[in-house]
Structure formats: structure tokens, C-alpha cells
Simulated assay, not measured.
Amino acid sequence: MKLNCVVVDDSSIQRMIIAKLVNNHQNLHLIGDFSNAIEAKSCMSIHNVDLIFLDIEMPVISGFDFLDGLKIKPQIIFITSKSEYAMKAFDYDATDYLQKPIAIDRFNASVKRAIDFHLLKKR
């Protein structure tokens, strides 16, 4: 079982790092990586997405504003360099909250949490 994922981060370096982590994980399938929420939303109207790796501070539309505009919300793993958004992130039912730079063991723990939750929902 693989979760369909998208990565949304305005930093091209961070996007590449996260995309590589997703591509190297046996239980994740990368649908696409996007520099802004508008592109991601367009992709999500076409593809079924189970999990979003989402930056919070982005130009034009923040990660939170992006989520406010979604009718169907997949699981969210927030990825940001700032800890002050953690409490608000969990108001959005975040599956997890990763701080940059991302440690591989912490990334894997987040993915395990998302997979476990996905399996529970399917029961």
C-alpha cells in the first residue's frame, strides 16, 4: 500500500530534499512537487492525494490559507523552519509537524504515523 503524496514548498532546495525522501520511501508515491499552493490545488483536482507535505510560509497563499480552500482535506505533514506555528497546525488536524532541516528518522516516524492513520480510516 502506497500513499499518494504531493510536496508544496516555495524553496526549490527544500522541495527537492522532501521529494527525494518521498521517492526513497517504499510506502509513498509522489504525484508531484509544487512551488505554490495554486499549482498543488490544480493537481489535486485531477489526482487522488492521501498526504500533503506542506510548508506554511509561502508567497501569495500560505499553507493555512491553502488548507482553508480545500473541500476534501488529505492528511497533512507540515514542514517549516519555525516552531511557532505548531499549535495552529494541530488546529488543522495535522498528522505531524516537521521542522527544517528534516532528519530522516523523524521523517520516517511521520510517514509511519500517516500510514497507521490511513489504515485505521479504512477499517
Rank of each mutant, 00 (worst) to 15 (best):
M1L: 12
L3P: 01
L3D: 03
L3F: 09
L3K: 05
V6R: 00
V6I: 15
V7Q: 04
D9A: 00
D9P: 02
S11T: 10
Q14L: 06
Q14W: 09
Q14P: 01
R15G: 04
R15P: 02
I18N: 03
I18K: 04
A19I: 02
A19N: 08
V22Y: 02
N23D: 10
N23T: 06
N24P: 04
H25R: 08
N27G: 11
N27S: 12
L30T: 06
I31P: 02
G32N: 04
D33N: 13
F34Y: 15
F34P: 00
S35G: 14
S35K: 13
I38L: 14
E39Q: 15
E39A: 14
A40I: 07
K41D: 11
K41M: 14
S42K: 15
S42A: 14
S45M: 15
S45L: 12
I46R: 11
I46W: 04
N48M: 07
V49W: 01
D50C: 09
F53G: 00
F53H: 00
L54A: 05
L54Q: 06
E57V: 08
E57L: 11
M58K: 01
V60C: 05
V60D: 10
I61N: 03
G63V: 01
G63E: 05
F64V: 08
F64Y: 10
F64I: 14
D65G: 04
D68E: 10
L70A: 04
L70Q: 07
L70V: 02
K71C: 08
I72M: 06
K73D: 03
K73N: 09
I76M: 11
F78K: 03
F78D: 02
F78H: 08
F78C: 03
F78Y: 15
T80L: 12
S81H: 09
K82M: 14
K82Y: 14
E84M: 13
E84K: 12
E84L: 12
Y85I: 05
Y85N: 03
K88G: 03
F90C: 06
Y92C: 08
Y92F: 13
D93C: 08
D93W: 09
A94C: 05
T95Y: 02
D96E: 13
Q99Y: 04
P101V: 11
P101G: 11
P101T: 07
I102C: 04
A103N: 11
A103D: 15
I104L: 14
I104T: 13
D105P: 02
F107N: 01
F107G: 00
A109Q: 09
S110D: 09
V111G: 03
V111M: 09
V111H: 03
K112T: 13
R113F: 09
A114F: 03
I115R: 05
I115P: 04
I115K: 12
L119H: 13
K121M: 15
K122L: 14
